[in-house]
Write a protein that binds this DNA or RNA. Structure first.
Lengths: 114, 114
DNA sequence: CAACCATATAACTGCATGCTCATACGAGCA
DNA sequence: TGCTCGTATGAGCATGCAGTTATATGGTTG
């Protein structure tokens, strides 16, 4: 079976839909804050509500979405539900974007201090 | 000047907004198709309209957004406006996501062929 | 100048979705 | 059994935004 490198260059429109959907999950600040709060270890819903300052309903819904996508994993512990990162790749993505944005901003800022 | 590694773990909510905005740009199939069409080299608007099958107005708007974000760069050539990738990092991001999705789907598919 | 081509823009519509409020579910405990 | 806590879920609202249509802009050619 011939196996080319998986490149964005040869993806069907349907595949692009899936990729776009993945990016869409990361395109919400509140969800990024949840991932951020889970970066150092698992947390239950109440802890995440406190960490983000959002509504419990809102947090729960976002967690559900991230879980369905396989980015988070869910575990029950007595009365609590504990969430954790299931796919650390999201941090690679964030770091890439973050680094690039930081570089861009510094370059632009340099125009004011010649 | 102390310089820690830039990690998603310590980002202000405002910084997360910027990161989310960046992801949002990539969260649209049509924009991914435009990037895909530009992967092998620069193209003018008409060519991109043909490549994507979208409306000229729609293509033009998406190109404008990607340009403002610094992902694309614009160049005038006679009557045409030629767009090109300005930040190849987008392909790194897409490849990461793409590879992961592919692996996930293959793993799930394997459940049907034990 | 007039006609035309390539691109950008403005107004509008429809749909998706984030947020909130209220409520339901389910587990532990009196 | 009844109560409380933790979590999930559904309805409704508001906003954002992709897409279309129509038009403006601007450069080229006759």
């Amino acid at each position: 079976m011939p196996r080319k490198k998986l490149s964005p260059a040869d993806l069907s429109p349907q595949a692009l839909e899936l990729v776009a959907a993945r990016f869409k999950l990361l395109a919400e600040p509140m969800r990024l804050r949840l991932l951020q709060a889970l970066h150092d270890g698992e947390r239950n819903v109440t802890q995440l509500v406190e960490a983000t300052g959002a509504t419990q309903a809102n947090v729960s819904k976002h967690l559900g979405l991230l879980c369905d996508a396989g980015i988070l994993r869910r575990r029950k512990d007595g009365m609590h539900v504990i969430y954790a990162i299931a796919d650390p790749m999201v941090f690679e993505l964030c770091t890439l974007v973050c680094t690039r944005l930081h570089a861009d901003l510094e370059r632009k800022a340099a125009h004011f201090a010649p």
